[in-house]
Amino acid sequence: MPRQNIELRIRRQDSPTGPSRWEEFVLPWQPSMNVISCLMEIRKNPVTKQGQKTTPVHWESSCLEEVCGACTMLVNGKPRQSCTALVDNMPDGPITLEPLTKFPVVRDLQVDRKPMFEALKIVKAWVPIDGTYDLGPGPKLSQSEQETSYAFSRCMTCGCCMEVCPQYNTRSDFIGPAPLGQVRLFNAHPTGRMNAHERLDAIMGRGGIVDCGNAQNCVEACPKEIPLTEALGELGKQTTVYWLKNLLNK
């Protein structure tokens, strides 16, 4: 028996530094709704459950098929993509929506995921191919290598793993699991591997791999089921070997 009405409790915030407040909304149920279509309904007529007129709720979304990560928010306290948060799959009772807590709020449910993008730059999460001549096609990957790399390549920098990581917070410099997963990806790439030491250098300081505390929440939260904890172990191994080599050879 589907619900007749959908109740939403939304944590709202008008500006990046402003105070936050809760607002409640009720809307009629329609088939196949997701959280974003609920927000679109509210936008048509932004009136709270108590009958007060308010501003439309602000959120960010793009692909609407769980590949861009833009619409990530806390739905009933859990970080996930709101575009694939289907109302009919949720338990009865009000649905709470909050912005992610580990990133600066822009407005209402939209956060700025810039810290993650900056971290990707720090760890050089790319394969450098710019140059003065054509490098030609790179070496081939084996089937099993392709499969592992494919898993990591699906990261959409949504921030779910960062949200649940106890070591990723304002008291710590830790860059978080998502960029580390990308180091794992690009260090396995046959051409990217040539710059592996640069990425290892980048994660062997303050905020790097040694600041992970092995809570392994990240892997539980990742909607793309990226084996983040395997990446952390693998990078533990790569940094150990690289560190010992340097100690002995330099």
């Binding site: 306290g77 649940v164 106890p166 917070n169 008291r171 809570a215 392994q216 929440n217 539980e220």
Partner: peptide, 24 residues
């Protein structure tokens, strides 16, 4: 010092390994 850099979140995310992290 390390313990003070963590932000325990067992209440929100009660996974087994998170318990173990916190108990450590």
């Amino acid at each position: 010092i390390i313990a003070t850099t963590g932000q325990a979140n067992l209440g929100k995310h009660g996974y087994a390994r998170n318990w173990q992290y916190t108990l450590q």
